Amino acid sequence: MKVLVCIKQVPDMESRFKANSSGNWYDEADLAFRMNEYDEYAVEQAVQLREQLGDAADVTVLSIGPDRVVEALKKALAMGCDRGVHVQDPAVSLKDPWQIASIIATYAKDKGFDLIFTGMQSQDRASAQVGVAVAEQLGYSCATTLVGFSFADGVVTAKRELEGGLKGVVKLRTPALVTCQLGLNVPRYPTLPNIMKAKKKEIQAIPVVDILKEEALAATASVYPPARKGGGIVLEGDLNDMASQLIGILKEKTAVVR
C-alpha cells in the first residue's frame, strides 16, 4: 500500500508577526518555524498505518517551500515515514490553495498512492482547502476533519467531527484522501535513534517549475494586524451619578438620545 502524507512548515504561533515590505504576507525574519500542528496528526496516522500493515505499506512525506522546510521533512522521517519529497519553492506564500493542491496532485497522479493524509488546515493561512482540492483533482474519495481512523480490506472507516460537537462515521474505499484534526491521535516524539536513522533516508528535491502548470486563481492583496481595541472606562461613585455619566458617554459615542 502506497501512502502519501503532505505537511507544511509554519511559524510558531507565539511569534510576533509583522507584514513584509510588500505588505502581502508576513515578514519571515526572526521567526521560528515548525511543522504545522494538524499535519503532525496526519504524519502520526500514516505511520500508525504503516506499523499496522508492516512491509506492505510505504509512506512518502511531501512538503512545498524554501530550503528550511527540509527540517520539517526530517522530523516526519524521524517519526517513521520512509522517504521525503521537497518541492523547492521560495515563493510558496504567493500561491493560492488551488495552486498548492495542483502541485501535490501533479506529483501524485502517476505514483499510484492508495491513501493520502493531510492536515485539516494550516495554522498560518487556515483555508482548509488544499486537501479537498487535491482529492478533487485526483478523483479520490475524501473525508475531512477526522478524529477517528481505521483501515481494513481496502476500506477506510473515518470518524468525523461535525458542527455542534457531533460525530459522523463514513466509509471510503481507496484510493482516498483524509484530512486530520485535533483529537485523532497523539503525535509521537522522535527518539534519538530514529533521528539518526532519518539522516540516511532519501529526500528527493524537485523544482516547483517542473510541476506547477496552474495559474493563480486568487492573490493575497495585503495583510495587516487586527485593529487595536480601545480601553474600557470604569465608572465610580453614586448609582445616580454613574447613570448620568453613562448617558453622557452614550450620547457622545453613539446616536443614542433620551
Results as ranks from 00 to 15, higher is better:
Ala108Glu: 11
Lys171Thr: 11
Arg125Ser: 13
Tyr107Leu: 15
Ile195Ser: 05
Val155Tyr: 10
Lys171Pro: 08
Ala158His: 00
Asn194Ile: 06
Ala133Arg: 12
Val147Glu: 03
Lys167Arg: 15
Asn185Glu: 12
Tyr189Cys: 09
Ser127Pro: 08
Gly183Met: 14
Ala128Gln: 06
Arg125His: 11
Lys111Glu: 15
Pro187Gly: 06
Gly148Val: 03
Pro175Ala: 05
Leu166Arg: 14
Ala158Ile: 02
Gly119Ala: 03
Asp114His: 00
Ser150Tyr: 04
Leu146Gly: 03
Leu192Arg: 11
Leu177Ser: 02
Asn185Met: 11
Leu192Tyr: 07
Pro175Asp: 01
Pro175Ser: 06
Leu184Lys: 13
Tyr107Cys: 04
Cys142Trp: 07
Gly183Cys: 14
Phe151Pro: 05
Lys109Arg: 15
Met120Ile: 04
Ser127Val: 13
Ala158Glu: 05
Leu184Ser: 07
Pro193Ala: 04
Leu146His: 04
Glu136Arg: 12
Val134Thr: 07
Ser141Leu: 13
Ala128Glu: 09
Val134Tyr: 01
Gly112Tyr: 01
Val169Arg: 02
Ala128Trp: 08
Arg173Phe: 08
Lys159Gly: 11
Leu177Tyr: 07
Val156Met: 05
Ala126Met: 15
Ala128Tyr: 07
Thr179His: 06
Lys109His: 15
Val134Arg: 05
Gln181Cys: 04
Asn194Leu: 13
Leu146Ala: 09
Gly139Met: 08
Leu184Phe: 10
Ser127His: 14
Thr118Val: 05
Thr157Asn: 05
Arg173Gly: 14
Ala135Tyr: 08
Ala128His: 03
Gly164His: 05
Ser127Gln: 13
Ser127Glu: 14
Cys180Pro: 09
Gln137Met: 15
Lys109Tyr: 13
Glu163Val: 12
Tyr140Ser: 01
Asp153Ile: 02
Cys142Pro: 05
Val186Ile: 15
Leu138Ile: 11
Arg188Tyr: 08
Ala108His: 13
Ala128Leu: 06
Thr179Asn: 06
Gly165Asp: 10
Asp153Trp: 06
Ser150Asp: 14
Tyr140Met: 10
Ala143Thr: 05
